[in-house]
Amino acid sequence: MRTVRFQVADMHCAACVMRLEGLEDELEGVERVEASYHRQQMEVTFDEARLPLEAITAAAAKMGYPIQLIE
C-alpha cells in the first residue's frame, strides 16, 4: 500500500470532495481517498501492484479535476 498526496485544481465546493472520494469505489486497487476542499488536496491510499499512479491522475482528469502529485 502506498499513500500519495495530490494538489487538486478546480475543486470549488464540498460536492467535488464527494465526487473525488468516489474514486475509491470506481478504481480497482484504491483503498481510500480523503479529499479536502479547504486545502484543495486529496490523499489516496492504493495498491501499487494493482494500480499504476497514472491511472489515478487520469481518472481524476476525466472527472474534470487536473491533479498534481506533491508527495
Binding site: 464540498a14 464527494m18 472520494e21 469505489d25 480523503e34 479547504h38
Partner: peptide
C-alpha cells in the same frame, strides 16, 4: 472556503455507497 460547510465524511461515504 470556510464559508462552505463540509458534511461529515462518514455521511458522504454512506450516501455514496
Amino acid at each position: 472556503r470556510f464559508f462552505n460547510l463540509e458534511p461529515p465524511k462518514f455521511l458522504t461515504r454512506y450516501i455514496r455507497r
